[in-house]
């Protein structure tokens, strides 16, 4: 398997009024193609910072990030994001359809092709027929589905998500998790997700990266050896699932 994303000796420091804040220290990790990787760690450890580096929104103080073997500067091609704050990541002045169409402008598709992309991605997330609505007319779960549809419509090879399901209710959360699994199975997109929820990380991932410390380093990489397809009821009752979540939980807490 080849590495789709390589994080090489990445460190990140922020200048602050009271001196330099060293957040990430010498992080190295390879994300394999078609893998689902979760990043977990205590609050404020630097998870979002790492994602912002990956998406090219910031440059690391030292080290580099490669996508397909090429060092990135700015947002890499073929990358799409879903952010936690759905109320602020969809453009409120555009309907769902137009929100999805916005990133497609740069791909210079024809009208018919754009139409087709919008329809099929809405269909994929179970939102067919709602494209004419404004985001704020929809529930939180639907807005987050729409964000996923927008990400899928660009046909990304990499999908990056920062706590995508943190602000929806529990039932919706399960639905969205299964949606993400389905998307992964359908398109084989390499997926990186930050989450606070260790159960969710175990349920969805091939590998879990545990960040810990100040400045944060990679404390461990946990391989989730539970076969796909997974299901909310069976997988979560699996013996192995319980072992893994206990292990990850202990590490996030710094107990092991």
């Amino acid at each position: 398997m080849t590495a789709e994303i390589s994080i090489r000796n990445v460190s990140m420091e922020f200048p602050t009024p009271d001196g330099v804040k060293h957040v990430l220290n010498d992080i190295s990790y390879d994300v394999n193609q078609h893998h689902f990787v979760s990043i977990v760690g205590p609050s404020g450890v630097g998870k979002t910072t790492l994602l912002r580096l990956l998406t090219g929104l910031m440059k690391p103080t030292s080290g580099e990030i490669q996508v397909h073997g090429e060092r990135i500067s700015g947002a890499p091609k073929g990358l799409a994001v879903v952010l936690q704050d759905y109320t602020r990541s969809l453009m409120p002045w555009l309907t769902i359809e137009k929100n999805i169409a916005l990133p497609l402008r740069n791909q210079k598709l024809g009208k018919a092709e754009t139409r087709e992309r919008i329809e099929s991605s809405l269909e994929e997330v179970g939102l067919s027929g709602t494209g004419g609505n404004y985001p704020w007319q929809m529930s939180g779960g639907m807005q987050q589905r729409a964000s996923i549809a927008r990400a899928l419509a660009v046909r990304p090879t990499i999908l990056v998500m920062d706590e995508p399901f943190a602000s929806v209710d529990a039932q919706t959360r399960f639905d969205l998790e299964d949606l993400v699994l389905k998307v992964r199975a359908d398109f084989g997109i390499t997926t990186l997700m930050v989450t606070h929820d260790i159960d969710e990380a175990v349920y969805l991932s091939d590998e879990i990266v545990v960040l810990h410390g100040r400045p944060a380093g990679v404390r461990d990489v946990v391989v989730v050896d539970i076969p796909f397809p997974r299901s909310q009821i069976e997988t979560r009752n699996d013996q192995r699932f319980t072992e893994l979540r206990t292990h990850v939980y202990a590490m996030v807490r710094g107990l092991e």
Binding site: T55, G56, A75, S89, L102, P103, R105, N106, V160
Partner: peptide, 13 residues
């Protein structure tokens, strides 16, 4: 809103 700008930037807008 910076979140909107970040979203746009990642989609290369």
């Amino acid at each position: 809103d910076p979140t909107l700008l970040d979203t746009a930037a990642v989609f290369r807008i």
